[in-house]
């Protein structure tokens, strides 16, 4: 850990000032509380009618081009094994139905949780003898979009096994940790302020079921981790590295707090 600035004495005084303020002023606002299942809403419900229209219409949704690329990659022999995803998994419409709805999931072979992209990369190294694809590489986004698309409309159903419960717990801890120069947590924006606007943007509940998404601002497809990196930079925090266990843990907690919402991949966002 980075050595902390020498602030101790100040903190003591500041803590007293807080006690004083509490004694003098109205009660302080409460800590953010998690969204109840009945309140859960996809980010698309906060978007304007044009964006909603783009997501709903497969002939207009720009993310569908990546799904089509993914369908080709699914069939394409890769790596020194020269095996295609389809050689082992057959028709994705059947074998991949419901898979994305329960990721991240625990991978016994590596003893760690994997998100869908990590799972695809595991098949590349273990079964295709192919190198891993980097995060945000078009081929990986396309395969993740294609596999995700096979679960469209199914409710997010995170697995309940004990190893994943531990990962989600860590994810929740990170989600509720204030960070960065602005000292804000994910929970402060997405649990406490989701009915508000940050500048001109509606703050949504930070639900993750539509990823990867086509974001108009990016002019391209991007992963859930790319979105989270943007949120972390926004509070002037150092984002976790792509694929870091912290991101997987956050993804696992996001899946739990969105359980029951439908998979929307590929989503469209402004």
């Amino acid at each position: 850990m980075r050595p902390r600035p020498r602030l101790r004495w100040t903190e003591v005084v500041r803590a007293r000032a807080v006690v004083l303020a509490l004694a003098l002023a109205a009660p302080a606002a409460a800590e953010p509380v998690p969204i109840t299942p009945a309140e859960r809403r996809s980010g698309i419900t906060f978007a304007g009618p044009q964006t909603q229209g783009l997501q709903a219409d497969d002939t207009a949704n720009p993310g569908m081009l990546f799904v089509l690329d993914g369908a080709q990659l699914w069939q394409a022999p890769a790596g020194s094994a020269q095996r295609a995803c389809a050689d082992c998994h057959g028709a994705a419409e059947h074998s991949m139905r419901g898979v994305a709805a329960r990721y991240p999931a625990f991978d016994a072979a590596s003893g760690a949780a994997l998100d869908l992209s990590g799972r695809i990369n595991a098949c590349r190294t273990r079964h295709q003898d192919a190198p891993q694809l980097a995060s945000e590489e078009p081929g990986l986004l396309a395969l993740a979009a294609f596999v995700g698309f096979q679960s469209r409309g199914l409710p997010l159903a995170p697995p309940q096994d004990p190893p994943m419960a531990a990962v989600r717990k860590e994810g929740r801890r990170l989600y509720e940790t204030r960070m960065g120069q602005l000292r804000l947590s994910c929970a402060e924006c997405h649990d406490a302020l989701w009915a508000n606007r940050l500048g001109s943007s509606p703050i949504t509940q930070g639900q993750a079921g539509a990823y990867p998404i086509y974001r108009l601002e990016w002019q391209g497809l991007g992963s859930l981790q790319r979105r989270m990196r943007a949120c972390m930079s926004g509070v002037r925090a150092e984002p976790f590295a792509p694929g870091a266990p912290e991101f997987i843990a956050l993804e696992a907690y996001l899946a739990e707090r969105g359980a029951g919402l439908p998979v929307e991949t590929p989503g469209v966002r402004p």
Partner: peptide, 24 residues
């Protein structure tokens, strides 16, 4: 200092939360 749970950042404090980006 007035409301410890305020979302409003403390604008003239040395940041003391985790993971402050290098530039800040």
């Amino acid at each position: 200092a007035l409301n410890p749970n305020s979302p409003m950042p403390s604008f003239h404090q040395v940041p003391d939360a985790p993971r402050v980006a290098a530039a800040w």
